[in-house]
């Protein structure tokens, strides 16, 4: 009798990379060091999570421009606002749960209300740790989408994070970025024309059987799922929408209307409430465009602790779970 090896609970330092997948270590930290070399206004600030948000790379390169603010997220955000008031560009880092749940009022009134130039970079978006609800920012985008002036970015991989870091530094105004940290897979290298741009969605793959609109790590999964489905003769388009707000309404509507018969799946590493899925749904309703519409995302629940591969399967955001979901729907079309 064979037994499955018991999977270990994923720690905060767990990598999302599959075995053999190309990765980049600490893409945010290294990109920030590059950006800081070109712009003296950039400073780094953290609430005792520099090592876990890859800001330690910046701290080593620029110790005089790094501010350890202690485990005090409300202070982190208001002090970031103060730094921005004095003309600096603070990149402030913590976990998504703490920024969104604990420090909301400080981001809202000290930063966003005055459109201050603070970049809020937060690790452990959605289900990227097995530590349970205290660390899983499954509703951060829902919390932040209602905040005026705040740009929300959910990058896919190391390529996206590197480009988004430079784009944020050049952008005048507050930005919230959902950070993948540690050894981060590189998948967008495969699309040489791809460029991250705030507020822009990009078509990555063509396919007439279904369309996946995705953000964050779910774009990695969408690409993998599309590859696997193609081997089975099913062709799925992938539109990557890394900016959640402002949403690229024009590109999304054009992509849907190019093949209006395609079922649309919006995939996100976030609760099905209040994230990319509902953003796209509202866009479509307001535009009077009504494709067949599905969401792939995390349930409206406090999620289990455990090993990430187990949890991603359990909650339907693993590649295999996506393949299964899309294949059953596309097979119906092909059969009819």
């Amino acid at each position: 009798m064979t037994t499955q090896p018991r999977l270990k609970t994923s720690a905060m330092i767990a990598s999302l990379a599959a075995e053999g997948q190309p990765t980049t270590s600490a893409p945010f930290g290294h990109a920030l060091v590059e950006a800081a070399a070109a712009d003296e206004r950039i400073v780094g600030m953290t609430a005792d999570l520099g090592k876990y948000t890859d800001l330690h790379v910046f701290a080593q390169a620029y110790p005089e421009r790094h501010y350890q603010m202690g485990m005090a997220e409300q202070l982190l955000m208001s002090a970031g606002a103060g730094m921005a008031r004095e003309g600096f560009i603070p990149f402030v880092t913590t976990y998504g749960v703490f920024a969104s749940r604990r420090a909301y009022d400080f981001i809202c009134m000290a930063i966003a209300e005055e459109r201050l130039n603070v970049k809020i970079v937060c690790a452990l978006p959605g289900l990227t740790t097995g530590y349970g609800p205290s660390h899983q920012a499954t509703e951060d985008m829902a919390i932040f989408r209602g905040m005026p002036n705040l740009t929300i970015v959910d990058p896919c991989d190391a390529v996206d994070i590197e480009q988004a870091t430079h784009a944020m530094a050049a952008h005048d105004g507050p930005v919230y970025l959902r950070l993948l940290r540690g050894k981060v897979p590189r998948v967008l290298d495969r699309f040489p024309d791809y460029r991250f741009e705030i507020g822009r969605a990009r078509r990555l793959m063509e396919g007439e059987d279904a369309l996946i609109i995705s953000s964050g790590l779910m774009t990695m999964r969408a690409i993998e799922a599309a590859d696997l489905l193609a081997e089975r003769g099913m062709h799925v388009g992938v539109l990557h929408s890394p900016t959640i707000k402002p949403l690229d309404a024009q590109t999304i509507l054009e992509e849907i209307q190019r093949h209006p018969q395609r079922p649309v799946y919006v995939a996100e590493n976030h609760s099905v409430i209040g994230g990319l899925g509902e953003s796209v749904a509202a866009l479509l309703m307001n535009a009077g465009v009504h494709p067949e519409f599905h969401q792939i995302g995390l349930p409206d629940a406090f999620l289990d602790a455990g090993a990430l591969p187990t949890l991603h399967d359990r909650y339907g955001i693993s590649t295999q779970a996506m393949v299964k979901t899309l294949a059953s729907r596309i097979s119906l079309t092909h059969a009819s």
């Binding site: 501010y67 208001s78 002090a79 008031r85 004095e86 003309g87 000290a110």
Partner: peptide, 18 residues
Amino acid sequence: TGGSLGHGLGIGVGMALG
């Protein structure tokens, strides 16, 4: 912008650092 109490001193810390 005040009014949400407990913000001013933290902003002051950031400005003083700046």
